[in-house]
């Protein structure tokens, strides 16, 4: 699949923001005064909203995007939109009540946390529900998104606390979350990567009983939209190097650096982690093979 930047930024940045809101809802972020509260909410919601706005860039008709909130009964993309809007709205309510009362509402916080997780799940299922892409159509796909989102949120919160308070009590938790995310992603990479599509040029044409099917002539001389969109092959040449970069920056470097005690390093960890996640997400798309390419001479 073609790794479009709008989609990569959408899934990774809104995932990061939702991870922040998840821990924020659980009351895990040390908020000492109202100013910090406002600042954190702005930070978290900006990540989510910039991510969502980036997804609009992917649309042919962004002005009609509101229509995407209507089909939540069948469409994961629609559910994602509905859940994201609900999460943003309830985060604002949660923060407003907290600001005015001076006290955190446990119930509202819990709602924000659950909604954040559900939104990440729906994002993942946009891709995880597509039978046409065998690599994505795997039960672990949404868990990868959840684990990455949760550990990313923690990395940001540790950096936030480090810069405001000079220390963070979440270093152990963040390390564990990074370790879990690394494990889930590694298992996914191995399993989903091995997941063979049951579709072949033989099933695609229904001519398997006659022999082996190979493309003799394409329907046209130039690349068409389908091939442009779904026949991306560049990443497959650099998979190993890119996955090393992704794992290194997203998990390994943060896990070590969290314990370094070097303030500027810890504060810059969200950026390092995020570059790793962008690489991971780029590969998530670029490595995926779509069934339609079987009609264009590929064999998966």
């Amino acid at each position: 699949m073609r790794p479009a930047w709008s989609i990569i930024v959408f899934t990774s940045l809104s995932g990061l923001g939702l991870g922040m809101l998840f821990w924020f809802g659980l009351g895990m972020v040390v908020i000492e005064d109202p100013r910090d509260l406002i600042l954190f909410v702005i930070l978290g919601l900006s990540a989510v909203s910039i991510g969502l706005m980036s997804s609009l860039l992917h649309l042919g008709h962004p002005e009609r995007a509101w229509r995407a909130l209507s089909q939540w009964r069948s469409s994961w993309l629609s559910r994602e939109g509905v859940c994201a809007v609900a999460t943003i709205a309830l985060t604002l309510v949660y923060a407003a009540v907290w600001y005015l009362d001076g006290e955190r509402s446990l119930v509202l916080g819990l709602v924000v946390s659950v909604l954040s997780l559900v939104t990440v799940w729906t994002t993942a299922m946009i891709y995880g529900s597509l039978r046409t892409v065998a690599r994505w159509y795997h039960p672990l796909t949404p868990w990868v998104y959840l684990a990455l989102s949760a550990c990313g949120g923690l990395v940001v919160i540790v950096a936030w606390e480090q810069s405001l308070l000079g220390e963070s009590g979440l270093i152990e938790l963040a390390t564990v979350a990074l370790l879990i995310a690394l494990a889930v992603k590694a298992i996914w990479w191995k399993r989903a990567g091995r997941q063979q599509s049951s579709s072949t040029p033989e099933t695609a044409t229904g001519l398997g009983s006659m022999g082996q099917v190979d493309l003799l002539m394409a329907p046209h001389t130039e690349e068409n939209w389908l091939q442009h969109e779904m026949g991306f092959v560049v990443a497959r040449r650099h998979v190993n190097r890119l996955s090393q970069i992704a794992f290194g920056l997203a998990f390994i470097v943060p896990m070590i650096a969290l314990w370094s005690g070097i303030a500027w390093l810890i504060i810059s960890l969200p950026i390092i982690h995020f570059v790793g996640i962008l690489t991971e997400r780029w590969l998530f798309f670029a490595e995926a093979k779509h069934a339609v390419t079987l009609y264009y001479g590929e064999r998966h």
């Binding site: 699949m1 008709h61 009609r64 946009i126 597509l130 068409n224 389908l226 969109e229 339609v292 009609y295």
Partner: peptide, 20 residues
């Protein structure tokens, strides 16, 4: 008139029956 051009339907189709 209602299509936002997200392309997800084309991703969901194994046959390549939809083109933007």
């Amino acid at each position: 008139d209602h299509c936002i051009g997200c392309g997800l339907c084309a991703w969901a189709c194994p046959y390549g029956a939809r083109e933007m």
